[in-house]
Computed example of a mutant assay.
Amino acid sequence: MALAIADLIAKLEAWANPAWQESWDNCGWQVQPGVLNAPANVLVCLTPTLAVMAEALKLREQGTGINLILAHHPLIFSPLKAITQGDPVGDMVRQAIAHGIGIYTAHTNFDQVQNGTADLLAQVLHLQNSEPVVPTQAGLGYGRVGDLTPAVSLKELLDLIQAKLSPPCLIYSPAADLSQKIDRLAVLGGSGASFMAAVAKTGAQAYLTSDCKFHQFQEGRDRNLVLIDAGHYATERPACDRLVEIVQQWGAPWAQLSGQDEDFRQFWRN
């Protein structure tokens, strides 16, 4: 019997409990238009946008009955005061209800778990003996820190990140010598500069995250950390790819990674 959406969500919440989310976050159902008993045909994305909804509707026209958009980023962060045409969030809600497509988000709860955003970065970059930077419960928590065995030069680390994550641009702290050896690395997908004090206590020489500001690079220097910003999209998209595999292993009849996820940023190269 095909896995129903309700059963898929039960498995997801047993693994990444929405109760673990931060107080400011909004995990769980964003729109639930009465589709719980339907077989789970899932489009996984980083950010639920109108482009992703259009992709879901096009797949329907082609014969794939998409009925769930499973996203990392929440559609609704602030309380909605109105659902109006022309407002992107309002249009997403209207289309989801009209077409019977649920929208569900796993955000800061997904960041903490095994095979979540940070754990995937640790795996992709071959960190050994990785553990959470900020533990929240046994074996789980925000970020991961681990060993690079053998140690690599900073240049080799930047090349590895570029090869594995394909960011449009890598920003890193000025270093006196790109040949300096890095044998301990911390990672955290998405906006992780606020965790720098905790990272500094782990013994990491470098920290990969995203959305870092000018003075946060200064803080990294002052804490003897090489801060590396690979961008929000590049540091979290790999975990969405793994989420597709997990949903398939749970028995979803159909699951695919969105081809319309957007990095919202472009870098000019003359």
Rank of each mutant, 00 (worst) to 15 (best):
C240N: 11
H107A: 08
D159Q: 02
Y207L: 07
Q32Y: 06
H73Q: 01
F267L: 06
P48C: 08
N41M: 10
V145T: 14
L140E: 14
T209C: 09
L43C: 12
L43I: 03
E219V: 10
V152H: 03
D261P: 02
A19Y: 01
D25R: 10
G116Y: 02
P33V: 08
K164C: 02
I182C: 15
R269T: 12
A122N: 14
P174K: 04
E156R: 14
C27S: 15
F195I: 00
Q30C: 12
Q180N: 10
A163E: 15
W24V: 05
Y207D: 08
E55F: 09
L154M: 13
L43Q: 07
E245K: 12
G102K: 04
V145G: 12
L157P: 15
A19L: 14
A10M: 08
N224W: 03
S210E: 04
P33H: 09
D211S: 09
M196E: 14
N37L: 14
Q21L: 04
R242M: 00
D211V: 05
A19E: 15
S153G: 11
I97S: 02
Y172K: 06
L170G: 13
R144L: 03
L165Q: 14
R94C: 10
Q32R: 07
G203R: 13
Q218I: 07
Q123Y: 07
Q162M: 07
F217V: 08
E262K: 04
A239K: 00
I171T: 10
L154A: 02
H232Y: 11
K213F: 10
E55W: 11
H72R: 08
L120E: 15
C45R: 10
D147W: 06
V226A: 08
R269E: 12
L157V: 03
G231Q: 10
G231V: 06
K164A: 09
H232K: 13
L121E: 04
R60Y: 02
S258D: 02
G63Y: 11
N67A: 12
L154E: 05
Y142P: 06
T235S: 14
G189K: 09
G192Q: 10
I69V: 15
W250C: 11
M53G: 13
D177T: 07
A71V: 04
G231E: 13
G63E: 13
P238W: 05
Q30H: 13
T149D: 03
R221V: 10
L68Y: 07
P39M: 11
A16T: 08
